[in-house]
Write a protein that binds this DNA or RNA. Structure first.
Length: 449
RNA sequence: GUGGGUGUAGCUCAAUGGCAGAGCACCUGAUUGUGGUUCAGGCGGUUGUGGGUUCAAAUCCCAUCAUCCACCCCA
């Protein structure tokens, strides 16, 4: 029957991952997960869909517009939406299961989230976040630990020159008060400051004045946020200027404390900087905030995070102090792909060895050999085809898929109980007894480079 | 939501109003017990879609869709 074909395509901003790409993704995810567990964080899984009320009213107006709603044709009672991040679901979980959770609660979650933004480079509508958070600790040792986790991940992935930028919402508020910016205009203030990297000092200054903030307030402000001393010295600058302001004082003290712990945890001062122009958009942050940028190539921040001591309070009587971060694995993968940072053992296939089939008569012998190799944990594919078996085709198949080793057993080998093993990378070929095949395979794999 | 670029073979792209092409990929053979190199041949098209101008449109005009980039915001 002639039928119109459906054009195969995906919704905007959604992607498929073919096997070669999945192997790279899994390498990154496994590395991240390993580091999370190394620090004692434990896995949590939550549903894709959350109750609408759980998500709304947490992220700020702009962000809320991007939340995907979900619906089912017949059920009208449950208004649900797709999760926008992993932080709000965590807060819900903590409030819902507080009796089953031991605090401090360290959990990680690696899952996709959905945001209806317009896609562009390094930005998708469905993307994975890798979150690690500590619930129930208000001290800066927790914030420092989270940053240390980030730092360890970057090290293990070999990311080039990541810079962890650290600021504090309390400091930003303090700076606003100090400069005499009216309360109602603080959000405008933050938004403009956040653009510092893109539009520069002059641009920020101009934008602030345009938003109706007094020029004198802007001038005092600009002076403060541009301070770029190294490490704790940058905090001294603020201390000297607005040390008598309480909000600022608390913010400065927190960052000083954090620096002390960072040192103890082995995070070098070269790995981070206090950057007072870094703001972050999400509205739930209450204290220290951080984000990581890679200079080259720059795809936006690869990690965001901070302290959100009030968020859990939206789901239960009392809140719990919480700090955490989110690794943007998509951007990390994009960067690693661009710079070719994947180790060579991450190939395009999981298969170690292909067992070829010479003809119909030897097919069973090939299957037996494959089974024997698998018992010894050699990832073995048995060649299959609906057309005639041809060795040339089978070698080409192995080559195309990137399978490193090929086993051949034709009538001669079968008769003698032998097998021929070939390493495609350099053409090295050995002929061994089938009983010795496993040792020979291991040998070929080990000496391969 | 705003501004701009691009849509031609599976992929990357040529063809500036006059016969729709190349490279790569794929298939076949040279090579019926061995891939990656080479050589020969072959398959592959409603030029995103709809309309308009013209003797004639991939090419010019209008609309529409898709996609990419930038802004906003963000991982």
């Amino acid at each position: 029957m002639a039928q119109t074909k459906i054009k195969p395509r995906l919704a905007k901003g959604f992607r498929d991952f073919l096997p070669a790409e999945m192997l790279k993704r899994q390498y990154v995810i496994d590395t991240v997960e390993g580091v999370f567990q190394l620090y004692g964080y434990e896995p949590l899984q939550t549903p894709v869909l959350e109750m609408r009320d759980t998500l709304f009213g947490k992220y700020g107006e702009d962000a809320e517009q991007l939340i995907y709603s979900a619906q089912h044709g017949r059920s009208k009672s449950d208004e649900v939406a797709m999760r926008y991040d992993l932080t709000v679901p965590l807060s819900r979980v903590v409030a819902q299961y507080e009796n089953d959770i031991t605090f401090p609660f360290r959990r990680y979650q690696i899952s996709p989230v959905w945001r209806g933004e317009r896609p562009q480079k390094g930005r998708y509508r469905e993307f994975y976040q890798c979150d690690a958070d500590i619930v129930g600790v208000s001290g800066m040792e927790a914030d420092a630990e989270v940053i240390s986790v980030m730092h360890t991940v970057y090290q293990r992935l070999n990311l080039p020159q990541p810079i962890i930028k650290i600021n504090n919402r309390k400091l930003l508020t303090g700076m606003g008060i100090f400069s005499g910016v009216p309360d109602g205009q603080l959000p405008d203030l933050y938004r403009s400051i956040d653009k510092f990297d893109k539009i520069g000092a002059d641009g920020v200054e101009k934008e602030l004045v345009e938003r109706g903030i007094p020029a004198e307030a802007v001038a005092r402000m600009m002076n403060l946020i541009q301070s770029r001393e190294a490490g704790v010295k940058n905090l001294d600058v603020l201390d000297n200027q607005m040390g008598d302001l309480e909000a600022a004082q608390v913010g400065i003290a927190e960052l000083r404390s954090m620096a002390t712990y960072l040192d103890a945890l082995g995070v070098p001062t070269s790995a981070y900087e206090f950057d007072f122009t870094m703001v972050r958009g999400l509205s739930y942050y209450t204290g220290p905030i951080f984000e990581t940028i890679i200079q080259e190539p720059n795809l936006g921040s690869v990690t965001g995070g901070g302290r959100y001591d009030d968020l859990i309070g939206l789901f239960r009587r009392e809140s719990l102090p919480t700090v955490g971060m989110s690794l943007g694995i998509e951007r990390i993968i994009d960067i690693m792909t661009e710079l070719d940072l994947f180790p060579s053992h991450i190939g395009d296939t999981v298969v170690d060895l292909l067992v070829t089939v010479f003809d119909d008569e030897t097919q069973i012998a090939s299957a037996r050999l494959a089974s024997q190799l698998r018992k010894m944990n050699i990832r073995t594919e048995l060649y299959m085809s609906d057309s005639k078996f041809k060795l040339g085709k089978q070698f080409a198949y192995a080559d195309k898929k990137g399978i490193p080793l090929v086993a051949t057993l034709g009538p001669e080998e079968v008769a003698q109980g032998r097998v021929s093993l070939k390493r495609l990378s350099d053409g090295e070929e050995v002929d061994v007894l089938q009983a010795d095949a496993v040792d020979a395979v291991v040998n070929l794999m080990q000496t391969e480079f």
